[in-house]
């Protein structure tokens, strides 16, 4: 491992102190400023129980890929395209009923470059849309039950984390995840995955991908808080989850989930 456990803890303590200071300042400022913008939507803190939900509105996503970039920068994820905590897929359904899916570089550069659109030129498209993907933080996570050393587990908030000091790199969890949300970090040789930006949500902030989403296609919050965006959307819109037949009970809900998305 590149960082020893001792250094890891030391850094952690420093970070925690910094985090507390930062949180208090920001909290104070918020009260003073009383700014009301889309960004000031915060997670009710502290989080109790497993009531956090992530909602993705497929009808809103524009495929800009800012979320993918933010995730990689925020969480120190390797920039190569085969390592992703979150990514954006593009679904294109032609009039002949064919479904084409792609996700160039995980969508990190968006979908506007010419080489990404060549094969869609002249295609008779019935409909097309983007589907952002991330760890579903399943209530019944298959990845957790298969880990031979219990290095991956659900926190009390229901977020699935990987203990980098315990993971042996067997990658059974990578096989067991039906959503392809896990990968082996090539630097530490341990498995990595989306944490819903655990270090942010525990400070009352939004995950980085939600933070940067320009159209509000990604929403995050407490389903038990009636004023939160997610509880409002879940109340008013029909939501669905990916691969419900597998019984994993995802905590990531999708609005406008099209048939054939998996």
């Amino acid at each position: 491992m590149l960082i020893s456990r001792r250094d890891f803890i030391k850094g952690g303590v420093a970070g925690a102190v910094g985090g507390v200071v930062l949180y208090n300042t920001s909290h104070l400022m918020r009260t003073l400023a009383e700014t009301r913008s889309a960004q000031s939507l915060k997670v009710a803190s502290p989080i109790k129980g497993r009531s956090l939900r992530f909602v993705v509105d497929i009808n809103k996503c524009i495929g800009c890929g800012k979320c993918v970039k933010a995730c990689k920068l925020e969480n120190d994820v390797p920039l190569e395209p085969e390592f992703n905590r979150t990514w954006v897929e593009r679904y294109t359904i032609t009039r002949s009923g064919e479904t084409l899916v792609d996700s160039p570089n995980g969508g990190i550069d968006g979908f506007t470059a010419d080489y990404m659109n060549e094969k869609y030129k002249g295609l008779d498209i019935r409909k097309s849309f983007f589907v952002p993907k991330l760890c579903n933080q399943c209530e019944k996570p298959p990845c957790v039950s298969v880990c031979p050393v219990a290095a991956t587990y659900a926190t009390e908030e229901g977020v699935i984390l990987v203990d980098r000091n315990a993971c042996i790199g067997c990658r059974y969890c990578v096989q067991a995840c039906p959503y392809g949300a896990r990968f082996l970090d090539p630097r530490y040789k341990v498995v990595d995955k989306c944490t819903w930006c655990y270090h942010r949500i525990t400070k009352g902030l939004l995950p980085a991908c939600v933070e940067v989403c320009p159209v509000g296609a990604r929403m995050f919050g407490d389903i038990e808080d009636p004023n939160s965006k997610v509880s409002q959307v879940i109340r008013e819109r029909a939501v669905a989850v990916l691969k419900p037949e597998l019984g994993t009970e995802p905590m990531v809900y999708y609005v406008g989930l099209e048939k054939g998305v998996r």
Partner: peptide
Amino acid sequence: FYREKENTAEWAARPMAYADPILCNQ
């Protein structure tokens, strides 16, 4: 036994790259 709480604290203490958005207006 599994030292989960220790690891949870480690994850919670990770440094942020994207700041609290409320700070920009200052």
